[in-house]
Design a protein around this nucleic acid. Structure first.
Lengths: 214, 214
DNA sequence: GGTCAGCTCCCCCGGCCGGGGGAGCGAGCT
DNA sequence: AGCTCGCTCCCCCGGCCGGGGGAGCTGACC
């Protein structure tokens, strides 16, 4: 397995060293640079060409959202950005999505969450569904700690999600796919879980916001 | 009130004359041209500069969807297109939306429906919600005849729809807007009705597809 | 002064939805 | 041969949702 090159962007040096320690403990991860603000992050990214940028939202001078947007304008589309939000006052999340962020993490996430998030985002463009979308929607959606509930959908699940996002009911989906309603419900349960969505409405939102639809 | 300039695009001359008769009976509507296929429609639109194009879907050579898309590329964005679908086998509707159609009508709609549709579409960019979106989704959503259930949402209703489209539950919306849940339900009922949506999922879809969101 | 539209709240109720289990099956991998 | 994963179906159940009524209050318009 090739090394995954990671750039850390956070205004707190302490946080950066902590992250560095966590990530460097993994053989497949290399921290290729650090930045204390958004402008530095873009500059460093241009220089070090990381695969992934762990991007704090709140940073002096140029914030993480803006930096994410700027990174997207680099030739080649720039690195994949995983946005790190401090807490749940994330009105950012929505903006970050539009800025091109590929993943989300709460700062208080566990070490494993960071590692897994980076690996997952690095693997594929199929990582479409940040769990944080839930909070994007439900102001209060407070739930289990801050892990990134990413997961790729199976073919069947994608199919079901597509039909959900066309407004079909469970019974209609069952008819459409020639399945039992119970089966459809199972798929939906998996989809909701993978998307971190509370209900089909939030799933539809995730589908649109992530580009799964369109 | 200024005249609304209408272009008719349908491959059946009979249909065109029928429409012309209906529309010309209204003092504020003028039929400025006719076209028998999509290519002719675009050409005529370029020449006559209509406000509205009544566009049949099924036409020889260049179909209505393609023509709609082409019209959108005219300088100034081109005229507003109201797509006329023959029946409920509208897999077209979805495509038409993406092609930039601003309204929908079933061919068997009443004369008044045509007139109202044109006026409404002409008035504002606020006409966002084609009733046909329902059928877009629910293969079977067969219901009352073919009128265009357009309607502009009130401010409160828009507000509610926006929150629905962020994934909030009724209770959460109530809390957010400092309202009773019953009130929220009332607004939602109105929204669903105006949008021709069966449930909040279809409402969200309509919100996205129509550009209400984003 | 009457009317209408928009906003607010209420009751009842049927039903689909989502969550929690469990379970069998075949394919593919080790 | 085991194991995992994806797909399929089942039961139970609580709850939110959506549909149908009704009703009062404001402010604008005529």
């Amino acid at each position: 397995m090739t090394q995954i090159r990671v750039l850390l962007a956070d205004d707190e040096p302490l946080v950066r060293s902590g992250l560095r320690a966590i990530l460097e403990s993994e053989p497949d991860l290399t921290v290729v640079g650090e930045a204390g603000d958004g402008a530095a992050a873009v500059a460093e990214a241009r220089r070090t060409r990381p695969d992934i940028v762990l991007m704090d939202v709140r940073m002096p001078r140029v914030d993480g959202i803006t930096a994410t947007r700027l990174l997207g304008q680099l030739d080649g589309g720039g690195p994949a950005v995983v946005v790190v939000t401090t807490f749940e006052n994330d009105d950012y999340v929505y903006d970050a999505l539009q800025a091109g962020a590929r993943g989300f993490l709460l700062k208080r996430a566990a070490a494993d969450d960071y590692i897994n998030a980076i690996r997952t985002v690095h693997e594929g463009e199929s990582l479409l569904f940040p769990a944080a979308i839930r909070r994007l929607a439900g102001r209060h959606g407070g739930q289990r700690g801050g892990q990134l509930a990413e997961a790729r959908l199976t073919e069947r699940e994608s199919e079901v999600l597509r039909l959900i996002a066309r407004g079909l009911s469970n019974a209609e989906i069952a008819a459409e796919l020639v399945l039992g309603v119970e089966t459809v419900k199972t798929h939906i349960r998996n989809v909701l879980s993978k998307l971190g969505a509370r209900d089909r409405v939030q799933a539809v939102i995730a589908a649109y916001e992530s580009g799964f639809i369109r």
